[in-house]
Design a protein around this nucleic acid. Sequence first.
DNA 1: CGATGTGAAGACTTTCACAGCA
DNA 2: TGCTGTGAAAGTCTTCACATCG
Lengths: 232, 232
Amino acid sequence: MSPHRTRRRIPDATVARLPIYLQILSAQLDGGTSNLSSEELATLAGVNAAKVRKDLSYLGSYGTRGVGYEVQYLVYQIRRELGLDHEWNVVILGAGNLGQALSGYGGFTERGYPIAGIFDIDPDKVDTLVGGVRVRPLDELAQVVAARSVSIGVIATPPVAAQDAADRLVRAGVTSILNFAPTLVNAPLGITVRTVDMSVEMQILSYHEQRRVAAASSLRSVQADGSRNQTA
Amino acid sequence: MSPHRTRRRIPDATVARLPIYLQILSAQLDGGTSNLSSEELATLAGVNAAKVRKDLSYLGSYGTRGVGYEVQYLVYQIRRELGLDHEWNVVILGAGNLGQALSGYGGFTERGYPIAGIFDIDPDKVDTLVGGVRVRPLDELAQVVAARSVSIGVIATPPVAAQDAADRLVRAGVTSILNFAPTLVNAPLGITVRTVDMSVEMQILSYHEQRRVAAASSLRSVQADGSRNQTA
DNA sequence: CGATGTGAAGACTTTCACAGCA
DNA sequence: TGCTGTGAAAGTCTTCACATCG
């Protein structure tokens, strides 16, 4: 009945780690490793082996007891789970510094996220070339999203324009948003928004630095930090 | 006895939200709002009011019952807790697309993280100007870190060079690292590393998109996603 | 025998609900 | 009275420890 097998929901924390495992496994595959134990994968990923096993168990029982996991098959399964078995067209809003870096970076297309269009509200930017793509005026957004079935939008505008960008993306039919502007954007329920804010990251670091200094001056020491990288 | 008052440890989850509150509170302050309830702040931050109160309670009792929080004072306290009461010099490793975007962005200096130097291993890049700063050869790193008391380093190199960059930063004396390369970097215990990987973010989004599609085709619907952004 | 898969314990985080203070 | 500050409950995530199976 259902064309995609419906599986148990995977915990957010696990979803956030799958891309890391995938990256490591892909590298191992390129290096010629065909099999890996949870212990080895855990070491490479810097996490606990039990966590690796539990994470992978959400995908199904793809390991072999006494042996480990077949790298190639695991790569296939993780890719499938992450929706990487086909391409996802994306649009980028904002052709400034950041928008240019993102499209020039090349990582999008290469990793299965072809850039269907870059948009800017500034007429001076429109029609310039950025990373080989012509910058389009914002009012062509809805048309491109529809024509190319875009479901993911990237916001690379200045902070003041970010909410408007998000609203336009949602109106155009985009359902997932990656926001690089240092501001929160609101979206209706059912739309997934992830914000990557460099200054938030810097402030978390300086909090730790600040504690280090405080601890040092009271002649004590601090320990390292484990980190995640998720969305909220 | 201790020059910096030692306070209870603040939970990681709270530390990750303080920059968000700070951003909102600063904007409110600029807009002339002098007082805010936990309910109002929670709405602006898109979180639960109890969470806001609990988070702020780790800083101390800075609210007034029946009234709310004085914005200006709270901004001061959060800034102090995050170590934003003074500047933190940073170095950027890698003067490619990303390194250029980061320095051109201007957000660093403006937000209290002056760029003490940009470094690249490529002789062709050395001595070019990036965001008004001269690119230096990598072997000047240690000297700059020492001379300018740099404790935060940003990795903006290609993935293959990231681990070497991290090693050099640690050797030079940097204790916090923000890694933008799409690869894990290892660092000794006591060094804080946070990784921001765009393709990880994209993959988390496509996971949700993929579920949306699967759910739609089995005539059910999905809900939105809350996100964090931390390090591991 | 060795490594997976997983109940159960423990740690951390969020949310509730209300006592207590301005 | 209204809103903070916080115990306690609920929920989520991590880790342990071991039964299970190749």
